[in-house]
Design a protein around this nucleic acid. Sequence first.
DNA 1: CACGCGTGGCA
DNA 2: TTGCCAAGCGT
Length: 367
Amino acid sequence: MKQDVNVLDTFDINGFQHDLISWFETEQRDLPWRINKDPYRVWVSEIMLQQTRVEAVKPFYKNFMGKFPTLEALAEAHEDEVLKAWEGLGYYSRARNLHSAVKEVKERYGGKVPDTPKEIGKLKGVGPYTQGAILSIAYGIPEPAVDGNVMRVMSRILSIWDDIAKPKTRQLFENIIREVISKDNPSYFNQGLMELGALICIPKNPACLLCPVRSHCRAFHEGVQKELPVKSKAKEPKVVSIVAGVFRTKDGRYIINKRPKTGLLANMWEFPNVEVQEGISNHKQQLAYYMREAFGLEVSVDEYAATVQHSFTHRTWEIFVFFGTAEGTIQESDTLKILTPEQFEQYTFSRSHKTIFEDCIERASLL
DNA sequence: CACGCGTGGCA
DNA sequence: TTGCCAAGCGT
């Protein structure tokens, strides 16, 4: 523990705090979650901002707060409504965990967001970063909120060469922040570090000449700001081939089904599809076989429609899409629906499957 | 600890 | 066009 903070032995903590907070006071962006310090509003913003850019979050946040303006409103909503409001933002378990945690706060804490690390850290979806962010921003409690920005900024300021991709490194920075955080204004200190990381101390080509704390920056003085932070690379995403069917019924509706409730894109709707087995080249045959085995449906797989590429951080989908038709009466269920194109609006899809609809529905209707 | 989990912007 | 991310968390 003491070893962690040896890097601070000759560091001007007070000067750094002052220069950082002064800069944040005048230069902070006007953002919808900075209107007040309502812990619920701060909480929602912190969840949405996980691994997501400010510009992407803004419209979702405004819409979400319009629909669920208070903790009680969100607690009383149905999960489907919450997920619908999250549609397109990504990382959907964030929405489910937030909803679940908000309900717990309502029931266990009478609707007041807890203000201790112990209690708040137990809430679903609230990890070390979010815990510190809510405590410092909403309650003014001097807890570290170490995210990617903070690790990048502080590794440059203190010239720390530990690999920030390693989980252990986050703890090193938490120990450092505990020493350097402003006890008078932990909210602006933490937000200032993140704002600096977003606007000035950016990953590539940091704007050091505009930086309010460059006089405190060891990497700048050593001329190594572009080599920090050290971050090892993730391995290559694997390519998964998928064959999917846009099946139309006689009355012009389309078959969709619901994904499993765990794993990738849990609970989202999609066109029926199956991973292409190694060594199988007849995609149409495999899809027809799958429809029979999975849904008990006899379908005709007709013409090739398109190949849709969709990349995740950890995997790439290569989706071969075919048009087809389904005969006879089909039994709808909780996980199988037959929709007119207009009805698609009411169901939640991932971006990749939306792409398929937009590309294919129109064309299928012309066949 | 390593991995799974989305999306859109930008060089 | 392709690669690299951006205010992490759960398991």
